[in-house]
Nucleic acid binder design. Sequence first.
DNA 1: AGAATAGTGTCTTTCAGACAATATATG
DNA 2: CATATATTGTCTGAAAGACACTATTCT
Lengths: 270, 270
Amino acid sequence: MQSEQQYLSQYDPSQFEHPSVTVDILLFTIKDRKLQLLLIKRKEHPFIGKWAIPGGFLRMEESADEAAARRIREETGVKNIHLEQLYTFSSVNRDPRTRVLSIAYLATVPYGKLRFQAGEGADEAGLFAVDGVRGESVTARPEKELSAEAGTLVLTGTEGDVITGSDLAFDHEKIIRTAVQRMRGKLGYTDLAFGFVEDLSSFTLTELRIIHEAILDRSLDIGNFRRTIKREYEATGRIRERGLEKGAVGRPAMLYQLDRSSMRDLTAPF
Amino acid sequence: MQSEQQYLSQYDPSQFEHPSVTVDILLFTIKDRKLQLLLIKRKEHPFIGKWAIPGGFLRMEESADEAAARRIREETGVKNIHLEQLYTFSSVNRDPRTRVLSIAYLATVPYGKLRFQAGEGADEAGLFAVDGVRGESVTARPEKELSAEAGTLVLTGTEGDVITGSDLAFDHEKIIRTAVQRMRGKLGYTDLAFGFVEDLSSFTLTELRIIHEAILDRSLDIGNFRRTIKREYEATGRIRERGLEKGAVGRPAMLYQLDRSSMRDLTAPF
DNA sequence: AGAATAGTGTCTTTCAGACAATATATG
DNA sequence: CATATATTGTCTGAAAGACACTATTCT
């Protein structure tokens, strides 16, 4: 009988062919009261010239979480944001080069933190408002999702340029739909919305409501929203009043502060 | 400039080192009013002799969904069950052999459909009642989950043999916790429970309630449960009455039938 | 004052939970 | 009839949605 030591020293990982593994990032932000997604224009084959979700190959010495965080830093200079795994896409022919798995991640970033890495070697990047995704449910099997539920995915760039889902590289249309549905589904029972707040130690309930409205793509009743948030967060001490806003138009709003120690899932490990 | 054709023909997938990719299956069933999980006893290094979630390497010609379905067939002879992706675990050192990613799948099977593949070469397999998982939430980052939320994971075998989470191979304790929490979270707003029903064209509301109770690990009020289910499913035509049960003790129950055409996500593709 | 934004209050409906009561089978 | 299980009904309190009203700032 072989010992575990012997076994491990003789193990040859290259005896089978392995798929490539990439990490793809759905980086969302909220700007102009709309949910916007970061896309890059591909400079290489395949799908050269098409818009795509940024991503990169997983390195042997990093976990998928770490790879996702690294890619976000490389692309936008942003650290310390909410990041969560979305789904792993694994259809055999989703990449024309070879077998490529993609572990998709969902990132939420306040717009003010975004810095595009301009300059040499940087990809052309852009924010696109996302429209045309129906439904608020998290589906169990995104890769089998039928177009019944679909509608046309419309992405509107900052300069008003419009592309549709079928203009995207790879299976990225499907990935984006999955991400938007997931965000909507989780909005109600997680702290997801706080990932978009510009300053967690000083925000108004209106800012928070606008975030919810952007994600759900519908307007919410002001009074009911306040009541719900206050019950869920203020009553349990997870947000606290912090004084009045200054210098704004109209009646000054109460500023709130999130108790970071009570945060569920928002502190990233990097 | 290179054409896409040229590029693809010259692409060499082996230029980078790739991780191994496995598919791991969390096959749950309900027996004796309890949620039970299929485990196998490892016959090989590493973790030889320990209990583990069944799994296998992803082949180049199959998607992860297909690999999961294949492994379930090989292990239990079961086809056509509800199967959904859970999470991809990717910590660098989760497997002592080499870098191995695991795409974990959640399978729900009515107990009556299970057939263990006994005989030559088959792994020793067993069902274990799952206990000691707290909370009903789907967490965004299972790999960072702290033990604060934990409690001891206790698995009780059919013969009354007990193992705890730390007796399991790899990071399988964490994977099991994630799966149970996910099931609990999705029970309320998906058709997950129907994956455990023995006969979808003839079941009672009591059978369905016992399934819910097993997953949530608490008893539910009979009247309130009926009311909720009927509102959600009968009012929308998704379940229909089908006649009275016969030969049981006590008042015969109404049998129901699920309208398969309205099923969300339950039809597997194989 | 008028415009703009923030914040409160009220009414209705829906729904979940606790629990009591009734119905229909078997032995 | 006793027992076992299924099914219905009733009451209460929490919460969501619609909507009207009040408050505080700036110009």
